[in-house]
Design a protein around this nucleic acid. Structure first.
Lengths: 236, 236, 236, 236
DNA sequence: CATGAATGAGCTTTCATTCAT
DNA sequence: GATGAATGAAAGCTCATTCAT
């Protein structure tokens, strides 16, 4: 562990410290930018403000991101990386009922995304999509689509196992997605200035949503059921 | 009610006609502003663009609205006219199952709000809430709260009639609200640049959501059920 | 002359005055920009300074020119227009010796370009050519080339008439061009801070140059001359 | 001249060697700066670019030159070393006709200045004179004036020997100077982006200019010549 | 000595707002 | 009332300069 060449060690340490600082900068800037973009929107956020919150000067920001728009893109990219590979693996390995898988998935989303700053990205994209069409496309492709696919396989698993009624998966996916994305949006918008008694407790909210959904999707007893309003999620 | 002075009436009519034109101006401006604010956000919308879309000059805009911010407030207020008295009346007069009432309510919302420009207000408020806290509070009070109350009464009706399981109404309300508000947001953001195959058809979407929810909330046969996962929406 | 409709006349006058003002703006800005660009170079000239010298605000400048670079291009274009068609015509119609034609041409250049602000363009282009390659090409094509062509025809005329020795016209042109362009450059650079006794009087300068050149180009008596240093401007 | 103290000599040598490296730095920087200033102008040249071209870091530049402006001044001063003592000596020692002396002088200028980087200084001073008046005065005093004086003596020599017509030397000097300085300017500005067929070949250019000038200045046969256009370079 | 990360004054450009017409 | 030319505060971005390492 100890070096036989202290001088070189010191030099290395010095450089390491400086570089650690340098390496930390982009992260600090991205964190500050995420907060402010989510809070005030892209256009209303001033570059200097981002810098100040990250504890650096205006110029430093542009040392790391060539423009405010590039900063925005980096913020989005930073917060969506390949979590889906991880989740896909968990899906493959999950042993248990699909109901439990769905419960687990929703809760995992909440813990890893919904309850973190990353959820602000959702609100951000919803607000700025039309101002950044390429970025919106990127988000669609990298986030919405994989999430959709994953959920679709969860639902398919339930249908295959007989736990869920057959359904039109395209819209079945949104039955799960919509309440979650809404929660993310709400948290970062109207939720921040909710009237007394209207504050949403995420745990309660999620439980209520997911359990209702599970009941809603559950296989109905085959008994006397070709009722008029029977096929709730018409296949196709 | 009838006037005894025809001349004055004519004068009034003339003035009214002139003022109607004057009064129409703000309307055109508000409509243009709504579109642009919804599409691009408050900060990213230029006053001149609003004026141009309304067919007037930049100066005229400031003749009617003392600032861009005032214009924004007017846009929001203009589009929050109290439809709730009307809806409350419909609720009181509704004859039929609560399931049908819920179906009717959701569809009415879609026809009167969701599918119209008014749905843009939802997106707008979600996007700009933190920049306009007092407006957000106003929106909460004038829209979210009454909507909440109305839905709460719908659900209570179903519980009282035995159609729905008892539930924690606070979160039960969001089971219905979330998918609808999400649809409104989506329509005006990522939905406008959706990848092929991912476009949401509102009719399908709404049907899938509401039927799943109805199943999810429906009274379960009392049989052998105080099962472990029984009370899905824990009361309280 | 007098109108039968004074009101319309007044309105027209008002509009005319306003529009005259508006129409004058670009010209005033271009004049101010020419002065400053010539004086300080493109990069060292601040947009606000141009505006101030033109008697308007910073914003107004960008109302007429979308960027500082566009302003620069406009300045160059404004000051070089089709003077060559006029000069070409004068060349065709000139009656007299080619020596007089050359004297006339040089003097005309001095009166119309050299002694005016337009001469600053020459200095400007020389200084900024490599920063604006497309503009330099434009200048080459629109100014240098036509000037070259015109001079070439003047010299050819002299050779054809037997007034001038045969010569390599390509470089003969520069024999005339160089001293003139140098004068324009000098005026706007070192000439502005010339040491006492070194100031160039343009009239004297031009006379000295042109008469020396005329002697230099003049047909030499055919006598005993295929001298060693005879063909001064080797043909080819 | 020789030292009586070898040790001190060695020390001096060592120090000299070390300082030579240190002294070489500014040289590389000055060379890089000259190139860039000539190419792009003072204001448009970035300090970092100079440093990079010199192969050092931005900080190092400011170690040797306290500011960009000081760098500029150093660049100019560095390249105005007094070649005139050398040239004056050559002039004194020249044996031959004044025509040959002029030919020799012009060619010497081209070889030692015109064709080298040093010619860039001319372009630089022409471009930046008005931004650096004190430098311009310095340049006038150190370069233009001595050059003028030297040329004046060359011409005077020719007049005295009867080779040249009597002339107003003040402007006679510019007859020679202008084409040379123009060539230097051209090389570094429009010449770098010349249209096909318009490129100036310096050798041809110089020959054409100098031979024409020699003819132009040559003593005319005394014959019947007080012709109308006789005294081409009016004395005074 | 040398480096290059950090700074902030300064410049270009935008755009809400004003006001003479 | 309506207009749109004009304004100037404010924001994005650059780059000469500094200084800790």
């Amino acid at each position: 562990m100890t070096s036989s060449c202290p001088l070189r060690d010191i030099a290395a340490t010095v450089r390491a410290k400086r570089e650690r600082r340098k390496d930390a900068r982009p992260g600090e800037l991205l964190a500050a930018a995420l907060e402010l973009f989510v809070e005030k929107g892209f256009a209303a956020t001033r570059a200097e403000e981002v810098a100040k919150r990250a504890g650096v000067s205006k110029g430093t920001l542009f040392l790391y991101f060539s423009s405010k728009e590039e900063l925005f893109k980096a913020v989005v990219r930073e917060n969506i990386s390949g979590r889906f590979t991880e989740w896909n693996a968990e899906f493959e390995n999950f042993r248990g009922s699909t109901a439990d898988l769905l419960r687990y998935s929703v809760r995992a989303w909440w813990e890893r995304i919904g309850s973190t700053k990353a959820s602000g990205i959702t609100k951000l994209m919803m607000s700025e999509a039309s101002n950044f069409p390429e970025l919106a496309a990127f988000y669609q492709h990298e986030v919405i689509q994989p999430g959709n696919d994953l959920l679709r396989r969860v639902l398919q698993r339930g249908v295959d196992s007989g736990e869920f009624e057959p359904m039109d998966l395209k819209y079945g996916v949104y039955v799960v997605l919509a309440p979650m994305l809404f929660l993310a949006m709400w948290k970062h918008s109207l939720g921040t200035c909710s009237a007394a008694g209207m504050e949403i407790d995420p745990e309660h909210y999620i439980t209520a949503q997911v359990e209702t959904i599970l009941h809603g999707l559950a296989k109905r007893p085959t008994a006397g059921r070709p009722s008029a309003n029977g096929g709730l999620l018409p296949c196709g």
